[in-house]
Design a binder for these strands. Structure first.
Lengths: 127, 127
DNA sequence: CAGTATCCGACCGGATACTG
DNA sequence: CAGTATCCGGTCGGATACTG
């Protein structure tokens, strides 16, 4: 393996753009759907505060990872979608995902159990 | 491009292990040197507090990314090196690095200038 | 040399209420 | 519906002094 390209500066930048508790799951949904309305995105992400989701989306838009489209209607309709820049990050994210599944399978499982539990708790609190 | 492998849980895990202001540069040095003593590592990373560097190294060791070796001498000699698990992350990190250089070149340049400035400031304060 | 012990301020995620 | 305004508590990076 050759690490001539690995200078850590770009890595800093990329990780900064990815820093935010809910960004991985936001990216996951935007990668797998053409576009999605704010409320729909909010509903399918368990336990995130509306404000926080908006903060993250605002940052990601500022970083050019996603595109925000607003229809001038009332009530407003806002759609979010992945940008070309964001989609180009896909292979690198998949590589991290595969690494984690191969080398940190336990932690991944713990996290899944944890999220599942939180999700169940939320379902209870909603009923 | 196929994103079947991209489930975001592993991404969460990987990003958690990478979260920490100085981890990218720590990884950079450990990728490019067989092993390195604590003080040497501390000296080549500008502007990091000793405690913070130790915190990060402790976390990375707990995550299995690096290996800490202690010689029972006085004064103590402690060496850090990348683990197999850590090295396996290399390709994914390089992918992120390349993405940033291609799609976020401006931000990378800003960061380099910024670090350069901080480094110069530190050099001044040391003289 | 390689840590530990304190203390601090800034930032971040989050809960809640309000608005165009 | 989508977003703003406030306030809060915990965590994180950091400065400094001390120790085996």
């Amino acid at each position: 393996m050759n690490y001539k390209q690995f200078r850590h500066c770009g890595l800093d930048v990329a990780l900064t753009m990815l820093s935010g508790k809910w960004k991985p799951i936001i990216l996951y949904h935007l990668f797998h759907q053409e576009q999605i309305r704010f409320t729909d995105l909010w509903r399918i992400i368990p336990k995130v505060a509306k404000k926080v989701l908006l903060d993250h989306l605002k940052q990601m838009e500022a970083h050019g990872l996603i595109i925000r489209t607003e229809k001038n209607t009332f009530p407003p309709e806002v759609y979010y979608q992945i940008s070309e820049k964001g989609r180009a990050m896909g292979p690198a994210l998949t590589a991290l995902e595969l690494w984690a599944n191969e080398y940190a399978a336990d932690e991944v499982k713990d996290l899944q159990d944890d999220k599942k539990k939180k999700y169940l708790i939320r379902k209870e609190s909603l009923s």
